[in-house]
Design a binder for these strands. Structure first.
Lengths: 345, 345
DNA sequence: GGCCTCGTTTGAAGCGCTACAACGAGAGCG
DNA sequence: CGCTCTCGTTGTAGCGCTTCAAACGAGGCC
């Protein structure tokens, strides 16, 4: 910014100091800050110079108190370790940038208690609104029950058509369908679904898509396996059990609810059954994690437009704040199939 | 919290409303909020009930304006995709919790422009102070040059002994030394270092530790390779070039500056040279990323106590805010060796 | 010359809360 | 019994800014 201007007042100058130095009233300084067009050019110039000289930084608390609103909104992320959420954050920041807003992040680790706490913290901060990423339907209910409705709240990665909230999610059912259809199209017929607990809405939806795809091909699901969670170790356990059945020819396709799960399965397959993926069995994951393209046998997957999700979520939120006659909407984005080695034919 | 109390004023009740309902002055309500011990038990009780009934949420902006300070500090993370930074955030949150403070996150993506922007945003917010994670020494200089010194700033993952700032970092030189010593102890003698650009302070330090370890074993470094960055693709490129030299017996150990780099190297080794890791060459990474333990050949690595780093950084910051005669300190934490397959002997 | 208009500037009233001095009422004491 | 303490409580002055009605001055117009 400015180079070697004589910065005074290391302790922080106020708007009064700026006004005094520029020889105008504080109201004019405030106008220069918030409504530049109202101020005559030469005045503006003097004020800008004074600001630079004093190193003046407006006090955000006073600003929002006087203005009655902040210039930021909150985003509560449920899993910073998952790149989907990092993408969501990026998208939301992009939308905020466009409107001169900023995004304040918080990390809930998927824990209800922390989701609650940050919703409350953001309520105190009087942010414009809150974007909340959610997995678990029971958390949704808890939060909705407790939410004061004072402040706009948009759910991300979760859908709810009740019209009480805006939600933006990625169509997980379509994703499950897409994954399954891909296996069918590459000739697999004996397909299992491996996914975590159904309280996780995305998992439940993917499973539904899976069933629908099989049904429309006139097939029955061989089996559905629900490990307690969806990480790599779980996948490895499952893969170990599946390996035998693959060898017996009972299974030739696996739809996994996450890439980590898929990676674990593939690894266990080759370790325990010397089974060739994709020759003996096709495996497809979900998320387009680094883990998927990094694996020894790169794993086909369903990619989720996290960036877009964050962007649209933020837009919904901003719309809810700005539009008086806002109607809640439930937006679903389409996932995308990414074909890699693990399902080749 | 409370269940079915008759919530009034969906639009937000103020402290006045609470005072009126409880039949006390607003000063007493404020005391009940900030200095419970000053208020008599029965009064406290009435106030709490009134707060519950009205669904009163104190206005943070007004609070911090009146109090002259906020109850939160800022944390600028340079890479949300790296679990180290997520750990740092956790540690900082833990330290903040202990003192009833909260942490506001921001994501700089390691970009100077964004680091700047958020330092400024946090300055406006008048947070108690800012924790800034930094990689690049040039960014440090830029930010220091521009920083108004109004507000405490602690650098994380970066060290600077000049005494102008508190810094907390993990001793990367020790880490490089540790990694190299481990390879030496498992019998490797022809060891290369693979690390990114030396403007990244952690990489430069690790390299220094590497040299020192070799020197004290009376060996010369075979070579030092600096890909442009430290991700997996870079590692793969490097591994491809190294494979040949491993086959010729010129190299039997690789110290990589990150796990991703190491993973790429290992992968390329087996793809291009059918080289056995760890038999023909030992490879050690850095960071204890998921990528390291998830790899087909789990990779030995140096683990960094990110949680502790965040915790200590937050403590330094809090100390700087609270202690009038605070002296800047430069803290270094010790990294830890984690042995896995890739260096077995 | 008087009256209007328009572009600029300004005084002052809050925004919702905290802090602090000051107050009243019992309690304890000589 | 009068005095001092102590504990709770309260009135009120800001915190630093935005906003809005009102003031101002310089032209422009009839």
């Amino acid at each position: 910014m400015s180079d070697a201007l004589p910065r005074e007042e290391p302790t922080s100058a106020g708007i009064k100091d700026v006004a005094a130095l520029a020889g105008v009233s504080i109201a004019t300084v405030s106008n220069a800050l918030n409504h530049r067009e109202r101020v005559a050019a030469p005045t503006l110039d003097r004020i800008d110079r004074a600001i630079g000289m004093l190193g003046y930084i407006p006090n955000g608390a006073a600003r929002s108190l006087a203005a009655g609103r902040t210039r930021s909104f909150g985003l509560i992320l449920s899993d910073l370790g998952n790149s989907l959420f990092v993408d969501i954050a990026r998208g939301a920041e992009r939308a905020a940038d466009e409107r001169g807003l900023s995004v304040v992040l918080a990390n809930s680790d998927g824990k209800l208690e922390r989701e609650d706490r940050y919703v409350e913290l953001f309520a105190e901060t009087r942010v414009r609104g809150v974007l909340l990423t959610l997995n678990d339907a029971s958390h949704f209910r808890a939060i909705v029950g407790r939410h004061a409705h004072g402040q706009p709240l948009v759910m991300l990665n979760f859908h709810d058509d009740s019209g009480r909230y805006c939600t933006a999610s990625i169509d997980n059912e379509a994703g499950g369908h897409l994954a399954t259809t891909h296996l069918l199209e590459t000739g697999r017929r004996r397909i299992v679904f491996v996914g975590g607990p159904d309280t996780l809405q995305p998992v439940a939806d993917r499973r539904r898509g899976f069933r629908r795809a099989l049904a429309s091909a006139g097939l029955d699901p061989i089996d559905e396996i629900a490990p307690t969670w969806v990480n790599r170790a779980d996948g490895w356990q499952v893969g170990r059990r599946l390996a035998e059945r693959v060898q017996r020819g009972e299974i030739d396709g696996v739809v996994a609810a996450s890439d980590l799960l898929a990676a674990g399965i593939v690894q266990a397959m080759s370790e325990f059954g010397a089974i060739s993926v994709p020759d003996s069995v096709g495996v497809i994951g979900y998320d387009n994690n680094q883990a998927a393209w990094d694996a020894p046998i790169p794993i086909s997957t369903i990619s989720q437009p996290g960036d877009e999700l964050g962007f649209i979520g933020a837009q919904l939120l901003i719309d809810e704040v700005d539009e008086p006659d806002h109607e809640h909407r439930a937006i679903r984005l389409a996932p995308e199939l990414i074909v890699r080695r693990s399902t080749e034919r």
